[in-house]
Design a protein around this nucleic acid. Structure first.
Length: 376
RNA sequence: GCUGGAAUCGUCUAGUGGCAAUGACAAGAGACUGUAAAUCUCUCGCCUUCGGGCUUCGUAGGUUCGAGUCCUACUUCCAGCA
């Protein structure tokens, strides 16, 4: 929205880390929080009821995918993403930049990006303005600025991508404000996206640029590995204004990323990893991920995780899950997705609790030592 | 009993004289981080110092430089006729 009133309230700070609440028209998000990846307006294999029951506070859909199908007009006609999907809670949309730049044959110029639909080859064009318009039509509570991803991890490409992202951010802000004035529906918020790859000077430059803009929060994009992520986030989040929320785009498959992200000042996360891992039989436990399809689980009648209160662990055992995967039953993916999503959501919830009762450091150390004891 | 046909890696299957031999499934394992992912990759006769070595296509012989492929007998199965 238009400024100076933050959508975020901070309850507690420990260094760069903070506990807070993001206020949206569809409800509050207690942070740090993991946001479910609902790319095509659904979290794969899960119903919204299951998402609510496993403790998810918010979902993130993807503008690129929804523009192609079913089209943003349809979602607007349905009353917006929350109403269309029956989520009824806080929602985010990613701008689609990440997807478009991963397509072959994208043509990029100052104005925007031309690309072909991966579904039927139809020609599309997306600009900062059209991405904002699409996101307003989709009607999520929080939108991401349309950003430019680097062609490679080289300094030159990162710098170019960052600079274009900044140019486009200015256009996103103008268009967003125009749409805010002409739109009679709920308030919708805009996050700028910080780029710069692994280069701290670029990250600092990008954070400074974004910090000055009239936006409601920040996405931190282009994060590749946990290696060096702490320094990068330290750089960026020391510069970004404290009072606005920060979303770490795409990170959360590895628990360490969530601990590091929260410790260095990120408030929300989203990641396709948990549900994708689940569909492929790779399931989280406190002792690391296991592949439930492995033969050694054939006769294992114990729950996947002893102290897990998800629907999967409360009712089913590993031998049964193994059987469901080996026979390729749909339920295998459903139960696995419930567990993995629950595991990551709850891990972040506990990070929040541990920050509140000053046990974060212990929680982080004991969790990571146990989770990663079998590798690295 | 006669006449045809068929027997190939756990299963089905390709192969009609020239390198253990096709494909699928099953099996075993691995990968996956702002989802073109219910996906993808690897292994799958035995051994290996990774160069290669050894043993394989119902059984036993034979022809041939060379046989899963041709010939003979046998075994089993299928179809038709008695």
């Amino acid at each position: 929205m238009l400024k100076e009133q933050s959508i975020f309230t901070i309850t507690k700070k420990i260094g760069l880390a903070r506990v807070g609440t993001i206020h949206t028209p569809h409800g509050d998000i207690k942070t740090p929080a993991f946001v479910g990846a609902a790319t095509r307006a659904t979290v794969k294999a899960l119903t919204m009821k299951e998402m609510r029951e496993l403790g998810s506070q918010a979902i993130l859909a993807n503008t690129y995918h929804l523009v192609l199908r079913p089209g943003t007009d349809l979602i607007k006609e349905a009353g917006g993403l929350a109403e269309f999907s029956s989520w009824h809670g806080p929602t985010f949309t990613d701008s689609g930049g990440f997807q478009i730049f991963s397509l072959p044959n994208v043509k990029i110029n100052e104005n925007g990006v031309k690309f072909k639909s991966h579904i039927d080859g139809a020609n599309f064009e997306m600009t900062p303005e059209s991405s904002m318009q699409a996101q307003w039509a989709i009607g999520a509570d929080i939108h991401m600025a349309f950003d430019h991803l680097a062609k490679s991890e080289s300094y030159e490409d990162m710098k170019e991508a960052m600079e274009r992202t900044h140019d486009w951010l200015d256009r996103c802000v103008i268009e967003h404000q125009r749409l805010a004035l002409t739109n009679t529906t709920n308030a919708q918020y805009l996050y700028a996206v910080v780029q710069g790859g692994t280069f701290l000077d670029l990250r600092a430059e990008s954070a400074k640029y974004c910090a000055e803009k009239s936006v409601d929060g920040f996405g931190i994009g282009g994060v590749f590995t946990a290696n060096g992520m702490d320094k990068m986030l330290q750089t960026v989040n020391s510069i970004l204004p404290e009072i606005k929320p920060r979303h770490l785009l795409g990170m959360g498959q590895e628990p360490i990323d969530l601990f590091v992200g929260a410790e260095y000042g990120c408030d929300t996360f989203d990641c396709v990893g948990p549900t994708r891992m689940a569909r492929n039989g790779s399931l989280y436990t406190l002792d690391g991920r296991i592949n439930i399809k492995n033969a050694k689980y054939t006769h294992d009648f114990t729950p996947l995780m002893m102290d897990c209160d998800c629907e999967c662990c409360k009712n089913y055992n590993k031998a049964y899950l193994h059987h469901l995967f080996k026979t390729d039953e749909i339920t295998a993916k459903v139960l696995a997705s419930i567990h993995n999503e629950h595991f990551i959501v709850k891990t972040v919830d506990r990070i929040r609790e541990s920050l509140l009762n000053d046990t974060f450091k212990d929680y982080k150390e004991s969790f990571l030592a146990r989770y990663y004891k079998n590798n690295k």
